[in-house]
Every structure is written in structure tokens, then in C-alpha cells.
Design a protein around this nucleic acid. Structure first.
Length: 553
RNA sequence: CGCGGGGUGGAGCAGUGGUAGCUCGUCGGGCUCAUAACCCGAAGGCCAGGGGUUCGAAUCCUCUCCCCGCUACCA
């Protein structure tokens, strides 16, 4: 049955390049899922874009003396290049500064406002006279009224975990200049999250198939009770509030950026020349929407965005939010400011995308934080990708190429071992499919690699290089069987390693894009031509470990 | 009593009630089609520790210890 699937992927903040954390956290799992679903014949729309607004971008622009848009555009283009290099197959990757997004965001704002889900309220807001600006919550520090910890921020106290607002803090100070701000009244718009509390509890209740951390976190959050949140700010960079008298205010990023999931779909439809094409992805209740994000984004995708969708009405709620945990680098938390990170553009200058995709897939932070180390990268590449999978392909194809004229050997009468291996390949195909379908990517790629290892064992046991001297037909039959397994491998590795699967597809005589193949085992056709193979993956020298580590930090 | 994640052979990890597994590394052997790749065998773990539940626990409960996040950039 053909399923329609919408895949939303976290919108990267356009203020620094993409790093491995982004890729392992959201983009790679989303891409694996999308490629798999497309190959299964499902109808997929995968969308994302750059989050161009927000304070960090403004701060950086101030520092460099340029407009915020300059910074945002620079990184947006950088993202587009990195995604292309890594093979992240978005159907659309746009940005929040488009006319389209601005209009959609403003329209939703107005709609929720008219329905009473957004209301005005006057708030006392800390204003720093020295810095001449209103201070967002996290720019205010003080003493927690609950536990007396001195490092509490305007939004919450990290010591006791209690949510706060700036007015509750004692000994208030501005984190920029350290002086005491004064409270000034300002009018803001609030999203009435409290109105959706019950409905959200009902919605999350049957989402037991969610990853346990996502489910538990959301449930607890909802049971503690939702508080309405301000969704406008007194800043200049962002989407204007579309009401007269509020020209100086902007929509706050977390309200506006999530709307990008919807506006990007509309943009995709427009570019496709069918303005209504987005509707089935958002309005058909049989469509399943998935949101791939990092764990810090959970509340925005399981609470705020669903609440907004409920308020807007006639839009489907998330079907699943497979949030990943974090990736550490060489055992330490990554930090862009300390350059303790591996940058995607930088990686792509030196290495192929598939080895990285392999490591991040097989060691994906699905259920707990995992570590990326260059030693592990080299090891996985050399000992697993090259030695197990790559070498299987190489030994099979070069042998056939030399001894069978570069054509598929005749299958002859397949013996019991051969039939068993082919059956195993079929089982692997469905196991990998099941694993990916429930977002267990690690399990999926492990199974794929296990099949490659099994094929190596089969070759060892049948030893066609010996058979060919006495019983050429038996050798042909064994190699035919190995080719059948390669046909399975190119498919089941495809979602994870699209570049090498495409290459293998071509070695095996296939034409066109492997993506157009279906998720099924195609038996080779005897005497069909193969193409001259070259290596699928290359070994990496151990010396890169120290070099790469030296370049960080 | 702040919250959360985690502690499984040398390394990285899987395993959530029923004889402790995977990949790599190490040692020994085989093979020679293949990117010194492949295959077989072996050594190596009282599953952080104490207590409890159970016929039976790495797996459930409880306590203790240790590590990592929860602070700016940041999935």
C-alpha cells in the first residue's frame, strides 16, 4: 500500500557551518528514512530550510559589522553545498527569509489571534539602560527565589530546575554588561498553550511507539502544566508582527521557524507548478508526518508545534518525532566556539561522504549519546567498509570480470548452500526494511553488514577460484549466487550509502539511478554484461587520526 | 533529596527475566579470487558495587559509588 509521508527536518540556525552533530542528529537519519521510503514506492516529501532569524545571528552581524542578512545568507548557501556533498536528499531546502514564509507565518499568527489563541498582554520587561535594549530572558541573571542559587537565568534555574520569569529573580543583572536592568512595560503577544494542554495529553497518550525519551519527556512536560508563552520580541531582525501599531516588534523565532515546515511545503508546491500539491501532505489524515530533530528540540515539536497545528485546524499532527541524542567528539561535548567540532564542509574537502554516513549510521545516537573519534572513523572505514563490504564486491567482480569475460556467469543448478544464501539475502532485505521503518537505523545497517560478512563466508566455503580449475559450472554457479547477494546489498545499503550503492549498481550492469529500483531482490541475468569494477571504498592512512585531532581544539 | 543519560571481556557497542553476544584488536591456523583483503579456531567478562524480588536477573526493586550533559555557540 502506498503511503504518503511528510518528513520535516530541524531547521539549522544560519550562524555557523554544519557540523557532525547536526548530521548525526537530524539530517542523516531523515535522509536514510526518506531514501528508504522512496525506494519502497511511497510518496515522500522531505522539507527543511535555514532558520535565518534569531539573536545569535544579529550578535554575529554586529561583531562583523554587516547586516544580519549577510551572515544568514552566507551560512544558508554553505548548508546547501554541504547537504549536496553529503547526499542529503531534500525535496526542498529553503529559508525563513522568503516572501512565502513571511506571509504564511503572518497568516498563521493572524489566524490564531482571531481565534483567541494568541492574546495581548502587558509585561514588565527588563530593559538595560547601558546596553539600550530589552533583555530576553536568557540575558538576565540573578538569584533563584527557590534555591538561592546565584546563577539562575530569566527563564529557569538550572540548579533546581524550576521555571522562572525575570521578575522573580533577586539581585538581577544584565549578562552583557553586568549592571542592573530596570523593568519597563512592554506589550507582547502570547500563545495560549494552556488552552491545548488537555488536547495534547490526549494526543500523546497513544504515541507509545515514540522513542521512550521523547514520550516520557513530553508526557512529563504536559503533566506539569503548560504556561502561555510570549511569541513576540522587541528586536529588529525577524518577521514583523502583522498588526498596526506593532511595527517595531518581531515574531519570536521559535514560533515562526516551526511554521517553516508548512511554508516550505507550500513553496515546494509552487515551484512544482501545482499550488495545491502541498495539501495532501498536510490535510489527508492518512499521511504520516515525521520530524527528525535533536533532543534539545523535543518540546518545540511535541508541544508547541502540535498546539499551533491544533489551533490552526485542518492540519495533521506529527505521527512520529524520532529525536536523536547527542554526538560527542573524541569523548568531549562538541563546542563550535572552541572549534571542538568536525565541520561538514571541511570533512567534504578531504573525504568521501559514504564513510562518514557509515560511521554515523552504525553508531548513531539513537538511544544515548555516542562518540565520534577519528580513530573509530578510520577503523570502521578500513576494517568494515573496505575489508568486509568493499572487498566482497571487489573479489567477486574482478574474478568474474577476468574469468567470465565481464558477463554474468550462468547460474546452472543452484545447490543447497547457494539457495540458502539467497534466502538469507531476502530475509536481510526485509529485516533492514523493518528496522528502518521503525527508525532503528543502527540495527538496519548492522544487518546489512552482516549479510556482506555472510557472503564472504560463502565464497570461502565454495572457493570458486579452486572450482574453476576442475568444475567451471560449479564456479559459475557460486559466483552467480554472489552476484545475487550484491544485488541485495546495493539495495539495502542504498539508504545509508547512496553514493557507493549507485556505483555498485553500475558495476553490476545497471543503468539509470539506483533510486528507481524497488526494494526487492532481483536475480542476475546470465550472460548480461557487467561493467569494469573499481574499488568501492579506499583505505585511509592511520596518520590522519593525529592530523585531524590536531586541527581541532 | 534538582533533572536527565550512562557504567557489559583491551577498544567501541548490542542485549530489559531463562545457558553472556557483535565488530575491532590480540594469539594460532587456513586460503591466495580480492584493497596484506577473506575464512576457521583460541584466549579474554564474577555484566560498577551492596541488598532485595523470583524457580531463575546484565535484564525488575532499593541503596551506594563513579562518569557525562543540563553554562555561551550548539542537532
Amino acid at each position: 500500500m502506498k503511503q504518503r509521508i511528510y518528513i520535516g527536518v530541524a531547521w539549522p540556525y544560519a550562524n555557523s557551518p554544519l557540523h557532525l552533530g547536526h548530521i548525526a542528529g537530524a539530517y542523516l537519519p531523515a535522509d536514510i528514512f526518506a531514501r528508504f521510503m522512496r525506494m519502497q514506492g511511497h510518496d515522500v516529501l522531505m522539507a527543511s530550510g535555514s532558520d535565518m532569524h534569531g539573536t545569535p545571528i544579529t550578535l554575529r552581524a554586529d561583531k562583523e559589522g554587516v547586516l544580519p542578512s549577510v551572515i544568514a545568507e552566507r551560512y544558508h548557501e554553505d548548508f546547501v553545498r554541504a547537504f549536496a556533498g553529503l547526499g542529503i536528499s531534500f525535496d526542498i531546502f529553503t529559508k525563513t527569509t522568503t516572501e512565502n514564509h513571511t506571509q504564511v507565518a503572518q497568516k498563521i499568527f493572524l489566524d490564531l489571534y482571531e481565534k483567541g489563541y494568541i492574546y495581548k498582554d502587558r509585561v514588565l520587561q527588563p530593559y538595560c539602560a547601558t546596553c539600550r535594549r530589552f533583555l530576553p530572558d536568557r540575558y538576565v541573571e540573578g538569584t533563584c527565589p527557590h534555591c538561592n542559587d546565584k546563577g539562575a537565568r530569566g527563564d529557569q534555574c538550572d540548579n533546581c530546575g524550576k521555571p522562572l520569569n525575570s521578575q522573580e529573580l533577586k539581585d538581577l543583572r544584565c549578562t552583557i554588561c553586568g549592571l542592573t536592568p530596570a523593568f519597563t512595560e512592554s506589550e507582547h503577544f502570547f500563545l495560549k498553550l494552556s488552552a491545548f494542554n488537555q488536547e495534547l495529553i490526549g494526543w500523546i497518550d497513544d504515541k507509545t511507539y515514540f522513542r521512550s525519551n521523547v514520550y516520557a519527556f513530553t508526557k512529563k512536560y504536559l503533566e506539569m502544566g503548560l504556561k502561555d508563552r510570549a511569541i513576540t520580541r522587541d528586536i529588529a531582525w525577524g518577521i514583523p508582527v502583522p498588526l498596526p501599531g506593532y511595527e517595531e516588534k518581531r515574531l519570536y523565532v521559535w514560533f515562526e521557524a516551526v511554521i517553516g515546515y508548512l511554508s516550505a511545503s507550500m513553496q515546494w508546491a509552487k515551484e512544482k507548478g501545482d499550488e495545491k500539491a502541498w495539501q495532501p501532505y498536510w490535510q489527508d489524515i492518512n499521511t504520516r508526518s515525521y520530524y527528525f530533530i535533536g533532543k534539545d528540540n523535543i518540546p518545540f515539536h511535541t508541544i508547541i508545534w502540535p498546539a499551533m497545528l491544533m489551533g490552526k485546524g485542518n492540519l495533521i499532527l506529527p505521527y512520529n518525532v524520532p529525536a536523536n541524542e547527542y554526538l560527542t567528539i573524541e569523548g568531549r561535548k562538541l563546542s563550535s566556539s572552541r572549534n571542538w567540532a568536525v565541520w561538514a564542509p571541511d570533512y567534504l574537502l578531504h573525504y568521501q561522504p559514504d564513510p562518514l554516513r557509515y560511521l554515523l549510521s552504525i553508531n548513531m545516537p539513537e538511544s544515548s549519546d555516542t562518540d565520534f573519534s577519528w580513530r573509530e572513523f578510520v577503523r570502521r572505514n578500513n576494517d568494515e567498509l573496505v575489508a568486509t563490504y568493499g572487498n566482497l564486491v571487489q573479489r567477486t567482480l574482478t574474478f568474474i570480470y577476468k574469468k567470465f569475460n565481464g558477463t554474468v556467469p550462468s547460474s546452472g543448478q543452484l545447490n543447497a548452500e547457494s539457495l540458502e544464501l539467497i534466502a538469507d539475502a531476502q530475509v536481510s532485505m526485509s529485516k533492514v526494511a523493518d528496522a528502518i521503518a521503525c527508525c532503528s537505523f543502527r540495527e538496519g545497517i548492522r544487518e546489512a553488514m552482516a549479510l556482506a560478512a555472510k557472503a564472504n563466508r560463502y565464497l570461502e566455503a565454495t572457493s570458486p577460484w579452486k572450482l574453476i580449475k576442475e568444475e567451471e559450472e560449479a564456479a559459475a554457479s557460486a559466483l552467480y549466487t554472489a552476484l545475487a547477494v550484491l544485488n541485495a546489498l546495493k539495495i539495502i545499503f542504498y539508504p545509508f550509502l547512496p553514493h557507493s550503492s549507485q556505483k555498485l549498481h553500475e558495476f553490476l550492469g545497471g543503468s539509470g539511478l539506483i533510486e528507481e529500483q524497488s526494494w526487492s531482490l532481483e536475480m542476475p541475468v546470465s550472460s548480461a554484461p557487467l561493467r569494469e569494477p573499481s574499488v568501492l571504498f579506499t583505505k585511509l592512512d592511520e596518520s590522519i587520526i593525529d592530523e585531524e585531532i590536531k586541527r581541532m581544539g
